[in-house]
Design a protein around this nucleic acid. Structure first.
Lengths: 229, 229, 229, 229
DNA sequence: CATGAATGAGAGTTCATTCAT
DNA sequence: GATGAATGAACTCTCATTCAT
């Protein structure tokens, strides 16, 4: 069954928000600055994690970072720039970790790779759960900068490679779409598991469920007339 | 593969906020009041949808509803009560719609039921996308009142009935957990599809992907341990 | 020793407050109205006692009185009129009670009369302590209406009569001033004893102290050169 | 005559308010800050004096002090903290002034010391009369910090010393209680004289009356029980 | 006359951002 | 560069008063 109506989301633009990402005001080259920026971001992560975006004040962040507000504003033009930077940092972490995982397990069965993928995502997200909420749900206005240094390999590319190795088992020949779907769904399911865990279900059960759902999506024979009729 | 560590989220105080729901200050009995409450809730939905919770001001809501702030506060003790009420309303809508769907298709193949479920969820969520963000991510503090009039049937119960009818096909005998998982994952995937649609993927593709993942979770024979090690 | 400087209180006019007393909007002649007014005043007393003037809301008062706010405003033009009316009521009570006391004890020693006076004042004030605060300190804008029905006898007059009977013992021949002083001081001391009781001192001790101070004021030989030198 | 019933005020919740004092948010070390705090307190005194506590707005205070509200809240966590600070300031003034007076006149007759005491209290209180009302009646929630630096001498101690010197003349051997009583009554009478001066009585007459009452309390031989019954 | 829903000015308080030092 | 005191617009919420019913 497919959707007849286009279902275009017509009204979900955060109005108060200009769309262009906020790059750090000055690229820190000196190591001192680099450390400062690191400290600020770390503090921002902690503060947003604890209080959310709106109630996480720049003063608190500066204080926790051990710098003055003025210094904070020297490196980040405004509050949202902090989120943008955190977003970028998070994306990089995710990319590195799951890319590594996938490349490491290139030769093992697909099920094992998917298990690893889910486990890695959970690991990254289970800490700073609320920060994830801020990053992904409150402030989803980060688009990975296409101009910056292109990453050597994206998670999608790494996953594609894995799928290539198992293309015979897959239910669909469109590996591109399959990889995108798996990543998108994986993230969504992991976020939900971490941020809104349903009362009865433990995290291990959720992890296994997620893995099975993703495998099901990839591997299940699309049409099995005998079984359905 | 299962998770050894419990992965308990230890530091995510959800909004510095107490959990108990905020009931409407005065139950509207007269039709006039009912209309007022309706207007306010409708306005709140629109304002939160556009601006999010923190930036959606009560004055704006009142203005959009065509009443004074005072009137708003006559029916809702504080801002959060608006979210709680919207939450309740949403839950009811979801429950009614998908319950209906599931009961209607009790005799059809499981695949069709899951398709229906996903489609229904998408239908409900694709409008007021940001409101959904507010409801589910920013302010997840609503628990349906267990003391009030118990609903004739919950979505979980309805889904259970469907699973019962197809228990032979299912990969797991624990229908309870299966139903909870499907609902939880379905919601998560639908939210993600609506709120963070990945650039390359259309909504129809997402809908189909979601449905297949859920079916895969339910139907795919678990790989037996021997084959995995 | 006398005060050289005039010590005129030059800046203590409550600015927001027009000075003229607020008479009840309509003199209630029907018994129904009378009861209504009584109920409202009783409620006002209780509410002001509990919450003070500013935080004692007219709605709360009306509710406690069992009438609608509208009805309240039918009999009292505004919130302050309630205080004015309470003030008048209090004055009447005080006048009646201590007048009675003083007249009853016309023939007993002065010390006993003063004791009685203090005791009566304490009795009246120890209940609704905070109301007394409201009446005397927060909202001292009541002047007994000189136009209204003149009371048969004022406390001052009654006290004067007592002093007359003991004029030989008194330290001053100006009975008028003495009576005024005793009443004024008595009230002040009783209020302080009730509203700001000092930690170490019990109310009985305070009562006795007050009585002795007043007697000391009245009776003490003004100059007793032998004892002072 | 003593009071049989304890007369405990059972229903006078003082301002729906917690009792702990509100310390200034940040102790001003730089002289600049000190001036600012001074200016704010001065403005607060004036505004509360004119409008009372509830109607004296923080914005008005800030404006009168020539600073922004934000600055006000940088030094005082909330409105009540202003009153607390004013209270402390007042207490210090009172303590210093009357302590000085009492110590200066240690050798003079008791009557002269009491006169001085009353005069000093009147001097301090006759200005900002309404502020005194705010401090003592509307917001009596300041307790001098017992933990902080203990004052070299409290008024009570200073008065005790004076009483010691005249113990032979006193009517009671309990100097502790006598000192407390005199202070408590003195304050009450001075407040009343300043805040609710009775129409006929001038301030000099009141001052003298107060002094005589206090002396009477201290010196008048207690009437022995046999004479009273 | 009685009602009580509706009003809306105004309160206390917060916090992103600036800029004189 | 670094600082952090100062700013003030904007927010949530209250409550005396009115007036259509």
């Amino acid at each position: 069954m497919t959707l007849a109506t286009p279902l275009d989301a017509h009204n979900s633009h955060p109005v108060d928000t200009e769309r262009r990402p906020h790059p750090p005001r000055k690229t820190p080259r000196q190591t001192r600055s680099k450390h400062l920026v690191e400290a600020i971001l770390e503090a921002a992560a902690r503060v947003f994690d604890q209080h959310g975006f709106e109630r996480g004040t720049t003063n608190r962040i500066a204080e926790l970072a051990g710098v003055s507000v003025g210094s904070l504003y020297q490196y980040f033009p405004n509050k949202k720039a902090l989120v943008t930077a955190l977003h970028a940092r998070h994306m990089q972490e995710v990319g590195q970790l799951i890319g590594q995982d996938l490349r490491d397990g290139a030769t093992q069965p697909l099920a094992a790779s998917i298990d690893h993928l889910v486990f890695s995502l959970l690991q990254i997200h289970h800490q700073n759960a609320r920060l994830q909420r801020v990053l992904h749900m409150e402030m989803p206005f980060y688009r990975p900068d296409p101009v910056g240094e292109p990453l050597a390999s994206t998670p999608a590319q790494d996953l594609m490679a894995v799928l290539q190795a198992h293309r015979a088992e897959l239910a669909t020949p469109d590996l591109d779409q399959a990889a995108a779907m798996v990543l998108h769904m994986g993230e969504a399911l992991v976020h939900a598991a971490v941020l809104n865990p349903p009362p009865g279900l433990g995290l291990p059960a959720l992890a296994e469920g997620i893995s099975q759902a993703l495998q099901g999506y990839l591997l299940r024979p699309r049409v099995d007339a005998g079984a359905r009729g």
